[in-house]
Computed example of a mutant assay.
Amino acid sequence: MRLCFLVEEQYRRDGMPNDVVRRLIALGHEVDVVRPSGSLLRMSELMETGTHDAWVLKTVSGGPGLTLLEAAAAFGLTTVNDARSIRGVRDKVLAAAIGRGRGLPLPPTYAVARPELLAEIPAAEYPLVVKPADGSSGRAVHLVSSPARLETLLPALAGEGMLIAQPYVPNSGTDIKVYAVGGELFATERCSPLHPDPSVRERQVPLSAEVAAIAAQVGAVYGLDLYGVDVLLGPDGPVVVDVNDFPSFRQVPDAAARVADAILRLARSGNSGTAPRTGAVTWTLSAARTTSPTPAEGSGVRGV
């Protein structure tokens, strides 16, 4: 098969996706890597039907990669994940509406186009978690204790575009990261970005039936096949606080092989990349061991 990976400069030397690319090449497949932020692209040729069997996205939220993936989907090409599904989780305003509307345990969510409008949120809702609607990797996430504290943060929030605010969910200071790949669920516990503590090390954990059911529901609700879910164990039960369409999978045993196999399976299924998945999926629960990716240098990948 011939595959096209859209990979942002930020992930140029990351183990994910470079280890997956190397795995696919070792299996005899051809892989082109496009750098969306650093390439002059002739769209009519790049999107030529039949050039690639599937397109895969590993880029930052808010970057140009998703637009290219959506262009591929518009041409009827197969995408991994589904292009519309990725848009549905990368826009956190849209993700909140979809998730709450479909019964996922998400916090109530406020959305504003200008940070000063956050001052209209009732004081009873504090403390708040405020973050960009297109944020990723913990960028510009703030725990806001009071309206007075919000006032001091307004200059820092001014350039972040659309923002969301959610009431803070009391928790132990750690969250559960659940990875979904190839019909299996893997989980680790890690320090919450709102409570940085260098002494807390990421560790493997078993999945409770309740959290596993929520993680599986996330895939069905958003139409994702490869994804990660951040879950907080709050006083009223598990709460979903973030969904990633192509996470690091760094805690998944043999992650590169598993992700590569999943990509090939999805590519062969011929999903058009324009409609959410509706079929039921049976997930297998696994506790993942802790591993660290090795940054990848040159791997024989074709650059575009």
Rank of each mutant, 00 (worst) to 15 (best):
R35W: 10
S39D: 04
S39L: 03
L40Y: 02
L40H: 05
L40M: 04
L41D: 01
L41P: 00
M43F: 08
M43Q: 09
M43R: 11
S44E: 09
E45V: 04
L46V: 15
L46H: 07
M47T: 11
M47R: 07
E48Q: 15
G50K: 09
G50W: 08
G50A: 13
G50I: 08
T51D: 05
T51E: 10
T51G: 13
H52Y: 15
H52N: 12
H52I: 05
D53A: 12
D53Y: 04
W55S: 01
V56F: 10
V56S: 04
L57I: 15
K58T: 05
T59M: 06
T59K: 04
V60K: 10
V60N: 06
S61A: 13
G62Y: 01
G62F: 00
G63A: 12
G63P: 07
G63I: 00
P64Y: 02
G65E: 01
L66Q: 09
L68F: 14
L68S: 03
L68N: 01
L69D: 01
A71V: 13
A72K: 01
A72W: 00
A73S: 15
A74R: 14
F75L: 11
G76E: 09
L77Q: 15
L77K: 05
L77F: 04
T78V: 13
T79Q: 04
V80N: 00
V80L: 12
N81S: 08
N81Q: 05
N81W: 01
N81M: 04
D82V: 12
D82P: 03
A83N: 03
A83T: 12
R84H: 09
R84I: 13
S85A: 15
S85T: 10
S85K: 03
I86R: 05
I86L: 11
R87Q: 13
G88I: 01
G88M: 02
V89G: 05
V89H: 01
R90M: 08
R90Q: 13
D91S: 08
D91N: 15
K92T: 08
V93H: 11
V93S: 13
L94S: 06
A95R: 03
A95H: 03
A95K: 02
A96K: 02
A97T: 09
A97R: 14
A97V: 10
A97L: 15
G99F: 00
G99A: 14
R100D: 13
R100I: 09
G101M: 10
G101S: 09
R102E: 14
R102P: 02
L104W: 00
P105W: 05
P105F: 04
P105L: 10
L106I: 10
L106H: 02
L106D: 02
P107E: 04
T109A: 11
Y110E: 08
Y110K: 08
Y110I: 11
A111F: 03
A111N: 03
V112L: 04
V112S: 07
R114I: 04
